[in-house]
Design a binder for these strands. Sequence first.
DNA 1: AGGCCGAGTTGTACGTTGTAAAACTACGCA
DNA 2: TGCGTAGTTTTACAACGTACAACTCGGCCT
Lengths: 217, 217
Amino acid sequence: MAASRRRGQHAGLTGPAILDTAVALADREGLAALSMRRLGTELGVEAMALYHHFPNKDALLDAMVEALATASPVPRFGRTDWRDGLRDYTRTRLDILAAHPNLVPLVLSRPATTEGTLRMMEDLLDSLGTAGFPPRRALDMVYALNGLIVVHAALGAGVGDAPAPHGEPGQTSRLAAVPAEAYPLLAEAARASARRGPTARFEFALAALLTGFPDPA
Amino acid sequence: MAASRRRGQHAGLTGPAILDTAVALADREGLAALSMRRLGTELGVEAMALYHHFPNKDALLDAMVEALATASPVPRFGRTDWRDGLRDYTRTRLDILAAHPNLVPLVLSRPATTEGTLRMMEDLLDSLGTAGFPPRRALDMVYALNGLIVVHAALGAGVGDAPAPHGEPGQTSRLAAVPAEAYPLLAEAARASARRGPTARFEFALAALLTGFPDPA
DNA sequence: AGGCCGAGTTGTACGTTGTAAAACTACGCA
DNA sequence: TGCGTAGTTTTACAACGTACAACTCGGCCT
């Protein structure tokens, strides 16, 4: 424990270790549980010790988002298979976010202009360039897909700080309690949706976007 | 001021008045400024007085979201013009959110299963039903569009609690500072995007979705 | 070998938050 | 006239991020 160490004694803290513990803690107990004090005790250290490795809490949160962004490389693709490539990219990204549902609000709330995110975008624009899309058009497409990812992750996880202590997740369950007499169509839709896999809605929107994207001029 | 009134004296507070002031305050100074104490002094009242009209802060925030949801009715449409109807709906919704950029994180972070939101959805499902779409398919489409709205509003406003004290808003400006040597395509795309209107990216994604939605079976 | 300097850690403190509990005032109704 | 109750203030508490200062030690310089 933190209290059992004398005052200036080293604890072997490192930036990456703090970051890992922070992600784990947020995954386990939600963003609301991620306070500096709490993270400190999790590491056997006082809260203020963390400030030697991150200038403030925001920097730590930024680092967490960046860690997600660089969790896996983006696929490369070319002239003939750009739709497949984009589909791959989008699904992979969603999987990563879905693995850390509690971090989704974080991703949503930070501009994401960090190194890793920019690198990812640049690579995508490069692939799309070889597919024949000029940068502006390519960026439009990537933005649309990123939005889809983030929104679906948010809905699927029940955005918010609550630890989601019980009750199954997923946006279908949120509509399950709709009063059928007042909203018959909604209730019917919710019932029908409940019989599908959790990503059916995502796949529908993804397919719509990909077929809606015009081919390069 | 709150201090100038004696202890149990009525202040004429009402739920709607509190709600309006809360929205105005958040619009003016950002979500972070919306504390119960601050909202109190804004109304010439102590913070705890508000708890007689809203059980807690979350309820107030929910009410704010609900107010946005019911700000304008959804368009009705039928068999031949469902794409136009959906485009109308989506644009109107975006306009409403864009008028209150600071509230976007709120909309994003609440499940939105309140009365007004459900009513809105039910109406859309009804129109889409006459257009030939079964409820489940219709709901998929509405979800996709809602996601687009919310994400674009978030990006366009720079999600976060910051009061955005200066500097032009818009997602293009966020990419303006990208180092051109490290990310040439991104920089080029940002430059090209800056010459368009702020909703060009939104319109692109909207068009893609609408043309990507398959016609009813 | 001796000294010391700075990185890393703790202790303490301040201001701010949401809100529980209780005290109080004044109005409406019996 | 009296009382209940709706509405407001007062006070209080626990938790938050973090500024600041005290402290301890490993490693470098002479």
